[in-house]
Simulated scan of single mutants.
Amino acid sequence: MRILMTGAAGGVGTLLRPRLAREGRVLRLLDVVPLEAGPGEEAVTADITDPEAMEAAMDGVDAVLHLGGHSVEQPWADILQININGTYVVLEAARRTGVRHVVLASSNHAVGFFPRGEDEAPDYLFPRPDTFYGVSKVTKEALGSLYHDRYGMHVTCLRIGSCFERPRDVRMLSTWLSPDDCARLVEASLAAGGFHVVWGVSANTRRWWSLEEGRAIGYEPKDDAEMYADKLIAEYGEPDPRESPHSLVGGAFCGPRYDVENLTTGG
């Protein structure tokens, strides 16, 4: 089996490379940054917005894990070209070459302005993006839905929370997706038929996002951010779920720092 991973030089891609390695599997790593391939890997330097390069990168591929694109807020023109058009180019290249399974890295920022309540934030939550970046994730999910319904592609969209080796602040006690659980989620998604939107979160004690759809496709998280709680609370204090950045799904992305007037004009 050969899996094309776009954005392989990024944070999540770097964490996943060793965790997705399997006997009989080849990871084809693609990024605009040159990468050195290790055992069981192939490296491709290409831009996800280049149709010819992406179609060539799909040769012999069985599934795509699309992580490529800006991972934080950027000016609209950059988001439009890289995140939105780039996703279209990836999906169209997959369609044209007959690739049937695609996993799309969406984000909690697709629904960032959804408020915290007493119940878990449900699966398939209606879009409420908090930034242009969040809009690009909504569009990514919409494109995935289109390519499933129109072309029969199997697509799973992962609304990823905070994927790091360990939670970095008290908010992440709720939103953390451990690297090992991220790999478990990707494995389940690569095998899932149909179209799915799944929360990318670990089995955190303080989690307030649903795991129902993830478990429906075979994802069973094993990690809990609570093991880091004592140290983080000693440093930052106990979080108040009624106050920012804990009161909205998107956290600080919902604040004025990300107003369009405050964005830089560069790439």
Rank of each mutant, 00 (worst) to 15 (best):
M1R: 14
L4K: 05
M5W: 06
M5I: 15
A8P: 14
A8R: 12
A9F: 09
A9S: 15
A9Q: 13
G11W: 02
V12T: 12
V12Q: 13
G13E: 05
T14I: 10
P18F: 07
P18S: 10
R19Q: 00
L27G: 03
E36C: 07
G38R: 12
P39L: 03
G40E: 10
T45H: 02
D47K: 11
I48F: 00
T49V: 15
D50C: 04
P51T: 14
A53F: 08
M54A: 01
E55C: 01
A56D: 09
M58F: 02
V61P: 08
V61M: 13
A63Q: 02
A63H: 09
V64I: 15
V64T: 14
L65G: 08
G68I: 05
V72L: 13
W76R: 09
I79P: 04
L80M: 05
Q81I: 01
I84P: 11
V90G: 12
V90E: 02
L91N: 01
L91P: 02
R95W: 01
R96E: 13
R96P: 08
T97Y: 01
T97R: 15
G98F: 03
V99R: 09
V99S: 05
R100L: 07
A105P: 00
S106E: 00
S106G: 04
S107C: 05
A110I: 00
G112N: 06
F114K: 06
P115F: 02
R116K: 14
G117K: 12
E118R: 14
A121L: 14
A121W: 10
F126S: 12
F132K: 06
Y133A: 08
K137T: 11
K137P: 01
V138I: 03
A142W: 10
L143S: 07
L143E: 15
D149L: 11
H154A: 08
T156D: 05
L158I: 02
I160V: 05
G161E: 04
G161V: 09
S162M: 00
E165V: 09
P167Q: 04
R168M: 14
D169R: 11
R171T: 09
T175Q: 07
S178I: 14
A183M: 01
L190E: 06
L190G: 10
A191I: 04
A192C: 07
A192F: 04
G200T: 10
V201N: 04
V201K: 00
S202Q: 13
A203N: 05
N204D: 09
N204M: 10
T205M: 01
R206I: 02
W208S: 00
S210G: 05
L211S: 00
E212L: 10
R215F: 04
G218F: 07
Y219L: 04
Y219K: 06
E220N: 14
D223E: 15
D224R: 15
D224E: 08
A225L: 13
Y228V: 03
K231V: 11
P239S: 04
D240L: 03
R242K: 15
R242E: 13
S244W: 15
H246I: 08
F253C: 06
F253D: 07
C254V: 09
D259G: 02
E261K: 15
E261N: 13
